[in-house]
Design a protein around this nucleic acid. Structure first.
Lengths: 197, 197, 197, 197
DNA sequence: CATGAATGAGACTTCATTCAT
DNA sequence: TATGAATGAAGTCTCATTCAT
């Protein structure tokens, strides 16, 4: 009953991910979501008060998992650089496992300074803060240079990751497995090692 | 013709910047632009075929200037690191001089993978390419490490800058002059020096 | 069956009275009624074929009682004026005992010339006819002037009562007991005595 | 230009009267109004912010005229009874000249205690107050009995008139000219003379 | 009897675009 | 050029009603 049965709410949420990813939040219609989910129009409004609420739910669900992953990395015994690597790895894998969902989150929420980004700013900032703490610990431990502001570095790190995701999103290609692994390394190398030779 | 007479077309473009920045492209109405410009509704359509065309014009106008600035930096005799600094400086100053315009370009075009970003992808990529060339030259000259892919580094650099702009946009505060200068340095330091101590 | 078990049908009808009175027939939802009654959504449709049918039932139930009261007054040995007083008294007491129900009947049925009023016109007219008979008897007995048309007078009388009820409904205040009694007298005095001094 | 030209706003208002009268405010669609007026759907919203606003406008326009007529009667040199007659006469003639408009005002506003009546309560009360003043003057002058409360009498008078209008509305017949005149007299006779013989 | 998920036809409102002046 | 009235296609959301359990 619990697993096999059609959980229509989940069905709608998953359909919304595909539709938002394909057409964009503003461009898609609620009926597109209902059609994609194979449910009646009205059922969408039975489970969600509005189209926005679907996006909110999607973001919140995923972001919570991500915050947990970040905090777990930060709480681990790993070296700061490895902690950053764990985070990059988690986000890249998130994209790998569900590119549509990550696309929606990045394009429609995280980078949308006008509407949803504003709404979820607090959540977003929380991620930066956790990453900034990792940097700060690295600086305190003497493995990271103290010249750079920890918060700035955290934002740079996250900005870097998002930029990579955005490139993947724009490219619309199937990313090969090696590339995922390669990029994880490159990301950390870039932020830690810098360009200077 | 150029000076005395009110250039209504310009008036409309400038008004559109403010309106797009304030309300977002999708959320604003054409009448909002006309009102902000103080011209009749219909005049907007006399000068532009559609609301989209206004945003396109805005982006293209500015992006051309930016590409020129990037190419100028790349063609200069400056050291690679200084070339990057010149670019960061130019973009930061662009934000400083007209934050609304940069907000519109970043939020509505550059980071909008579904709609306008897709349309202007080629233009956007051109900027990355120019920056990648700078990195490649630095690597050839031995001042930049060759471990990092030049294109990746260029995207990282631009991603960093956009992340900073996004923070400013989100913050909605008046950025003090020192911060602009400070960030310029921090940006280059971050991308070139990395975190490792 | 009749006493111990919860009569859900009655529960729904009583809840509908409160909901119709509070929100109006057109503005309320069937789910509001179910919620107010504390029963499942679908149960409303188990007992009633439609939202309209609930209002119909409410009206018919009450109107039957009222017609009986009017007819009883008309059949009594009382003087015509006292018969009118008995009717006014009955209606005022109806409001006193269940203002919500009377509000619903007056606002949604009796005065709703477009929808339900039309449906129940015959029932409504029956009340006027009984009252007109009282007036006619009074005229025949010489205690009422024959200048006024009996039917017209009956409508005037009922119109007067409804106007009073409407004022109470609009006022939204708790009507004190004395006012009920006072108005009963005033009503009869007005219709029988007139304004002329 | 001013008169002959199609004043679409007026066209819409007049069409709304017919549609509201025929179908009722809640039951009609905005498209019904547009169709009846022979204009495009959107034009309705060019002139009015909502369907409600159309009804508001209709009511306010007419009520203002009515208040003026009442005040004019009250300010005249006529005997109190004649003042009341002038008012009854004005309202009856209003119905005579535009029964649809009066139907809408009575059914959808004046007697609709739930929605619009509430909104316009103040305006409605103003009419009662003016009429109450007439009664009070009559009482002060000794031509009206002082036993009845002036406000109560005013409401009774207006209730009487509305009841007549409601009967006409319900009847859906073409009222003959004589009936209008006859009823004017009957109304005043009823309220002033009363039933007692 | 009882439940509440599921359905889908509408309704209102918005707004980009056109057009007559 | 300039104006703003006019158009009508869409889209969101509501909610009466049905139905499977």
């Amino acid at each position: 009953m619990t697993s096999g049965a059609a959980d229509k709410r989940r069905l709608i949420l998953d359909a919304a991910v595909r539709v938002f990813a394909r057409q964009g939040f503003h461009t898609c219609r609620v009926s597109d979501i209902a059609d994609e989910a194979g449910v009646a129009y009205g059922l969408v409004y039975h489970y969600f008060p509005s189209k926005e609420a679907i996006l909110d739910t999607l973001f919140l669900e995923r972001w919570e998992v991500m915050l947990a992953a970040i905090d777990e990395a930060a709480a681990s015994d790993l070296a700061p650089r490895e902690q950053l690597r764990a985070i990059a790895s988690f986000i890249v894998d998130s994209y790998r496992h569900d590119p549509d969902l990550m696309k929606v989150i990045v394009v429609e929420v995280t980078r949308a300074a006008n509407t949803f980004g504003r709404t979820h700013l607090e959540q977003i900032m929380r991620a930066y803060e956790s990453m900034a703490r990792i940097v700060a610990q690295g600086q305190a431990a003497g493995v990271f240079r103290s010249e750079v502001d920890a918060t700035f570095a955290a934002q740079a790190f996250y900005g870097l990751i998002e930029q990579v995701l955005t490139q993947w999103i724009f490219s619309e290609r199937e990313i090969p497995a090696e590339e995922f692994e390669h990029v994880k390394a490159e990301l950390v190398e870039m932020i830690c090692g810098g360009l200077d030779g």
